[in-house]
Simulated assay, not measured.
Amino acid sequence: MKQPLGVILAGGKATRMGGGDKGRLSLGGKTILQHVIGRLEPQVAGLAINANGDPARFEDIDMPVIPDSLTGFPGPLAGVLAGLDWAAEQGADAIVTAAADTPFFPCDLVPQLLLAAEGGPHPLALAASGEPGGKLWRQPTFGLWPVALRSDLRAALENGLRKVVIWTDKHDAGQASFVQSGIDPFFNVNTPEDLTEARRIAGEIE
């Protein structure tokens, strides 16, 4: 399989942060989005951002901005579908998604997802993380998604599906497990308190 394309999911409304683009918040001298780009870009063949509203606000990052094709903010699967449609136009086989508000995710995310999908019916896998020896929690915005299933995903969304793992379980998705050392690599910034914690983790504040 060809190296997947990357899609940064930024299509949510950020209600717990008071609205706006969480990825534009400052963290350690960069924006959160710049941290995400810096981690994902070296792992993929090309990169786009899934975001709704005026795409001009992302002109400075110099990458395609792809909105949801379904109305009503139906959740991260709508962003995955938008990414798959974009990838199909590029002739790609798959995409890997990452959330725009998660600045510390693993730098080996893509190779581990590819390994987890080996032997499956499709290049499909989700990341999961947890404490050593403890329960692993799936990370539904971090996954490897096959272009071949985009019509199936579109039909599921149009029929009201919103929960990621219901769809991925239906298609026997693999799981790439990341045991956390210290911090959860999938720690995401949802609230002002989370932003303070992220700045502490990044060493910006004590």
Rank of each mutant, 00 (worst) to 15 (best):
S177A: 15
R154V: 04
Q175L: 15
A176D: 13
W145Y: 11
G174L: 07
V164Y: 03
A148L: 06
V165T: 15
E158F: 07
A156D: 00
S151A: 10
G143D: 07
I183K: 15
F142A: 08
V164F: 06
R162D: 04
D169C: 06
N159I: 02
R162H: 04
G143A: 15
A173Q: 13
P146H: 14
D152R: 00
A155Q: 03
P185Y: 07
F178D: 13
N159W: 04
V179Q: 13
D172K: 13
L161W: 00
T141S: 08
D169A: 10
L157P: 07
R154W: 00
V147N: 00
L153C: 06
K170I: 02
D184N: 13
K163F: 05
A148Y: 04
L153W: 00
D172W: 14
S181A: 06
G160S: 09
V147L: 05
V147E: 01
G160A: 07
V179Y: 12
F178K: 11
I183R: 15
F186P: 08
S177Q: 14
V147F: 02
G143W: 04
D169S: 13
G143S: 13
A173Y: 10
P185S: 13
L149Y: 05
D152W: 00
A156E: 00
V147M: 06
A155P: 01
S151Y: 06
K163R: 14
V147K: 04
T168S: 12
A176M: 13
L157C: 12
L153Y: 01
L161M: 03
K163T: 11
P146D: 09
K163H: 11
G174Q: 11
I183M: 15
A176I: 11
D184R: 04
V179R: 14
T141N: 04
F186N: 07
L153P: 01
R154K: 10
G174K: 09
G182L: 02
T141A: 11
V179G: 14
L144M: 08
W167Y: 10
G174I: 07
L144K: 11
Q180W: 14
Q180V: 05
A148T: 02
F142E: 04
A173S: 14
I166Q: 12
S177L: 08
A148P: 00
F186Y: 14
G160F: 05
I166F: 02
P140G: 15
D172H: 15
D184G: 11
A148V: 05
D184W: 07
V147I: 08
F142T: 07
G143H: 09
R154P: 03
P146T: 12
I166D: 11
G182A: 05
K170S: 10
V164K: 05
G182T: 03
D152Y: 00
A155T: 07
K163C: 03
A155Y: 01
R154A: 11
V147A: 05
G143I: 09
A176T: 10
K170V: 03
Q180E: 15
V164L: 03
F186G: 09
T141V: 09
A173M: 08
W167N: 08
H171Q: 02
A156S: 05
G160T: 04
S151L: 12
G160P: 09
P146R: 12
